[in-house]
Design a protein around this nucleic acid. Sequence first.
DNA 1: ACCTGAACACCGTTCAAGT
DNA 2: ACCTGAACACCGTTCAAGT
Lengths: 236, 236
Amino acid sequence: MSEQLGAERADRPALTRGRIVDAAVRLVDEQGLAALSMRHLGAELGVEAMALYRHINGREDLLEAMVDALTSRLHLTDDWDLGPEDGWQAYLQKLAHTVRELAYDHPELFPLLVTRHPAAPWLRPPLRSLEVVEDFLTALTGRGFSDDQAVAAYRTFSSFLIGQLLLAVAQRGSIAMAGEEVLDEGGASSPNTTTSLDDFPLVKRLEGKLSEDHADEEFERTLEDLLERIDAEVSR
Amino acid sequence: MSEQLGAERADRPALTRGRIVDAAVRLVDEQGLAALSMRHLGAELGVEAMALYRHINGREDLLEAMVDALTSRLHLTDDWDLGPEDGWQAYLQKLAHTVRELAYDHPELFPLLVTRHPAAPWLRPPLRSLEVVEDFLTALTGRGFSDDQAVAAYRTFSSFLIGQLLLAVAQRGSIAMAGEEVLDEGGASSPNTTTSLDDFPLVKRLEGKLSEDHADEEFERTLEDLLERIDAEVSR
DNA sequence: ACCTGAACACCGTTCAAGT
DNA sequence: ACCTGAACACCGTTCAAGT
């Protein structure tokens, strides 16, 4: 009698594009980008790799879908609880911190997000999506920005987010290694040319300061700076 | 008699780590990152893939070496003709523009450069190398910066370069596509949910402005801003 | 309708064997 | 000493075949 119900085998929920993409994001979060193969992902979903091709147009399409899934989190929704009475600063603050959350939640995927071309070439990472950019422009032009000012702010803001967050994520990613050792340059170099910190006195002296992680304070400070510069531009 | 001369067969120059890395960079520049495989690279050098493993510790090592080869271009040399009489602004200007050249010359590789962890975790992309960071700190502390100010400038400067140049490179990369068409979101979505620009009136109206390429002017303007802010910090 | 087995053309990498 | 052939374990992807 249950033969009409179709594909759901016992415990397995139906295979959908959404479930595949979610599983892929989880897999990369837990095991890194290198662990993402169709076969491995299939196994994670209790299915052979070939079954994925019903829902996904190959690996590139999967990566694109993963990036889109993450980006959609930046879409302005009710629980941002921003009214029109809140200034554009409140919106940009909220947006900046949401992108930062995204980067911190998915450090393995964030580089992909800022590195892959969006489908529409004039959309820039990391906002990328038509929805999010529409939100951005609406929020700003609705609060007194001219078209040109809104577009200029979009550029500046994108560049700020990429620079700050890519560095922050890279820094966090490399905390696994111990602080003391400097790797030698590639296994095939002769041992007498091995690099030592002693050849770089200033780096050696400032190693402590260089390795301090001030990413969060710096993010806030630079964001404030940015908002002030935009403000100066707008109220001129 | 020539048997003592060893490996050089007829026209082939000797296989060295340097030649391999150079060939790999050229290959990626011409055919893209996806075309870089050990077998393909070997063929380019007139050799089987396995021969590369004499000089290179696997694929990861090769990528690292390529990035290092590019980064070494940023090392301060005589032909930068900067004397101690030139201010730190001159050095930062020269450095910024050299990094930009690097990004523009190797758009396929630049994302790798800013995305891969440097061997020493407190070195940040895109400067990455002990040599270059030593240059940076020497140039600034030699011109009146305190240790803290030099380190702070290093952070700010890195973040600026990454944000600006990653966007510029991504923008240039996507000029291949025609301006009119917006791709649909993944092949498996039902045709009635296909996205249209009409759903995003502001993006549609500002598409022209959004797609204008002002990367170079913006780079200069933001760099000036940055130098001014650093100057204010230093001469306080 | 949805999934699988088998196959194809490609990977990176190792190692014994050739010269 | 330097390179290669053959092999291994893995890829992405296609397609006829199974249920």
